[in-house]
């Protein structure tokens, strides 16, 4: 149906061709985001566990002896399913993400672009047994033995961590579980549509730029300028304004940075987008300007 292939393997960008024949492209989640999501999930699990224990303790206190056994069973089973079921159940949902992953903006997808199956979710989460718990077992084991010599502990822990940190050793940021399930974790991206910066601003007409002045920058600078405008940090906008004024040789006085920058943004974007329609994308200010352009009035 679809295919995703490792291309440009240095970055985290991977191809994803939809059945419509369009390369949508996905960005793999970095190690930091993955770790943060895991920590969040573990915190949630811990909080629920504490809640369960508090409820159980109060139950034991009120019911006395009669209630002990059912409560004991309930707590044991709940702990087991919390530990093994949390990740699987959430990743089987429509968003294919645990609460931690959702907060970080991640989701699990099938590596070949097909639908994520329950089998895959189960397989990827069963391997957490060695990724999360093996190092803990190693530590507690050496702690219990006490007299085990230091090197054995270090070797055991190192061996266990080899699985835990597997994700750092491959370009696709796959856990052992991801590898065995044929999945990887991608970023879901920005979810909200921002304001349209190219729409005419309130006093944009005050600034008119010549073609030469608009030819001073490329797409990379345009993108940076967009970021600055969206952040709306006054001091930063003045720094950028000064830089642009210096480069394009703007002679008139600039009284408000945002007005000037949004006017220049609109002008530069119109200029570069017109070039784009003629088949020329100027990557940045060091790139050459469009050749043989018909002169534009």
């Amino acid at each position: 149906m679809t295919s995703a292939s490792p291309q440009s393997t240095k970055t985290l960008r991977r191809a994803l061709v939809t059945p419509e024949g369009f390369d949508l492209g996905v960005t793999l989640a970095g190690a930091g985001a993955r770790f943060a999501a895991l920590v969040l999930d573990l915190v949630f699990i811990l909080l629920i566990l504490i809640a369960i224990l508090v409820v159980a303790a109060s139950g034991v206190a009120t019911l006395k002896d009669k209630g002990v056994e059912p409560i004991f069973i309930g707590v044991l089973i709940a702990m087991f399913f919390l530990r093994t079921g949390w990740f699987t159940l959430f990743e089987c949902g429509k968003r294919a993400a645990t609460p931690g992953k959702r907060i970080l903006g991640l989701r699990v997808v099938s590596r070949d672009g097909s639908a994520l199956s329950v089998d895959q979710v189960i397989a990827r989460n069963l391997m957490r047994e060695i990724e999360l718990f093996l190092p803990l077992i190693m530590l507690s084991f050496s702690g219990a033995q006490g007299n085990l010599d230091g090197w054995a502990t270090v070797m055991g822990l190192g061996w266990a961590l080899l699985f835990s940190l597997f994700l750092l050793f491959n370009r696709d940021r796959m856990r052992v579980g991801d590898m065995l399930a044929g999945t990887w974790v991608i970023e879901t991206g920005k979810q909200k549509l921002g304001e349209d910066l190219s729409a005419p601003q309130y006093d944009a007409h005050r600034y008119a730029f010549s073609q030469a002045q608009l030819s001073a920058y490329g797409v990379a600078e345009l993108t940076r300028l967009e970021e600055v405008l969206r952040r709306k940090d006054e001091a930063q906008m003045w720094v950028v304004t000064d830089a642009i004024v210096g480069r394009i040789g703007w002679a008139e006085h600039v009284s408000d940075a945002e007005g000037f920058l949004s006017a220049y943004y609109a002008g530069l974007r119109g200029h570069l987008e017109r070039d784009l329609l003629f088949g020329w994308k100027r990557a940045d200010k060091h790139d050459s300007a469009a050749p043989g352009m018909p002169s534009i009035g």
């Binding site: 920005k190 190219s198 974007r269 570069l272």
Partner: peptide
Amino acid sequence: VLDAQLLDYLQALSL
């Protein structure tokens, strides 16, 4: 279109 935010939004929505 050279609006990076718009491209990100459309990309995420399509995905």
